[in-house]
């Protein structure tokens, strides 16, 4: 697989504190290295506040990282100012979580779809654009198109609006779409069909997806042949092929996260406690040099307060010092991973 986008050493600090208080910067992303391959699906999973949405906005260019390099197909995105991003970065598009907020409430669906195509295809006639919009509507499965195009966002259901967002995102023929929790506000019975639609766009159009979510179950569904990156307090803790990570989670945080996900089968119930030392999420402000998960980690040792590097096994990279120890302790307790 050829790499499509590479993120190197991305750091993001937000300035906090106002006029009178002392300036403090919050380090929300720390040393993120990530490669997104052509046509692949990467699931970015983590709890709220782990920086996954910030990372998504950096990929789409809405935020400029404090440090680091972004390159799309070898072409560097000058990160100092968004304006300077080369136009090729139009190939990176964004699907937001709240489909109602993502569409202008006073513009019809047609207007919302028409404007971007018009802007970037100035030579097209209206008819060409209309044909394109028709194709998009067929692709996303809203038929007959005319019935939806004349409507305003509030006249559509959440699932339909989310489909419109997908149509808008693919209207500029992107190579990569960042989807930020696209189904979390959608009814359960419709989620699957939307995820299927995304898989279909991925397969038919070869569009790579970065699927940002806190829900591991949907991440597993959409990125079953893709990759999973687990984030915690601004760092990628574990990253590798989805099936490998899920069948054998190595990082203590990934282990806890997988245990916490409820399984829709009462026979799989267990009253087992999560392998965590503390349930409280430690603040992002007061983390030190070392592993951000250390304060909650049951396997923590003194070394964990020093900076950690990735360990790579079976194509999975893990940011943990005590992997062997964790492995040994878990093997000793025969509870098995979730199979």
């Amino acid at each position: 697989m050829n790499s499509l986008m590479t993120l190197e050493h991305i750091n993001m600090r937000f300035q906090k504190g106002g006029f009178f208080s002392k300036d403090r910067s919050v380090h929300v992303l720390k040393d993120i290295d990530l490669t997104i391959g052509e046509g692949e699906i990467l699931a970015l999973v983590g709890e709220s506040g782990c920086g996954k949405t910030t990372l998504g906005k950096i990929i789409t260019g809405l935020y400029v990282p404090t440090e680091g390099q972004i390159a799309l197909q070898g072409e560097s995105g000058e990160t100092i100012k968004r304006k300077k991003r080369p136009l090729s970065f139009l190939q990176v598009q964004f699907i937001q979580q709240d489909s109602y907020a993502a569409l202008n409430p006073v513009r019809t669906i047609y207007q919302s779809l028409y404007a971007p195509i018009r802007m970037h295809n100035p030579k097209w006639s209206k008819k060409q654009i209309d044909t394109k919009i028709d194709e998009l509507m067929t692709l996303i499965g809203l038929q007959p198109a005319a019935q939806f195009l004349s409507k305003y966002p509030h006249q559509l259901s959440g699932g339909q609006r989310q489909r419109i967002l997908m149509a808008r995102a693919i209207s500029l023929d992107p190579k990569l779409i960042v989807a930020d929790e696209p189904v979390s506000m959608i009814d359960v019975s419709l989620r699957l069909s939307l995820l299927n639609l995304m898989s279909e766009l991925n397969e038919r159009l070869g569009i790579a997806f970065v699927y940002i979510t806190h829900d591991l179950s949907t991440a597993r569904y959409i990125a079953r042949r893709g990759r999973l990156a687990v984030m915690y307090l601004g760092e990628i803790m574990e990253e590798g092929a989805m099936d490998v990570v899920l069948s054998h989670p190595r990082h203590p945080y990934t282990r806890a996260l997988l245990k916490a996900v409820p399984v829709p089968d009462p026979d799989a119930r267990s009253d087992e406690k999560l392998p965590l030392k503390s349930m409280e999420l430690s603040g992002i402000e007061d983390r030190g040099e070392g592993c951000p998960f250390a304060p909650r980690c049951p396997y923590m040792t003194e070394q964990c307060e020093r900076p950690v590097d990735y360990v790579v096994t079976e194509g999975v990279r893990i940011k943990c010092r005590n992997l062997e120890e964790v492995e040994r302790l878990n093997a000793a307790r025969p509870e098995g991973t979730d199979e």
Partner: peptide
Amino acid sequence: KGLIRATPSLIGDLEALKPIGGSP
């Protein structure tokens, strides 16, 4: 039945999942 079958999970066969058709 449809609801359970449409809920992604960490275990089980992904191919067995099926969305509920139609709209709410």
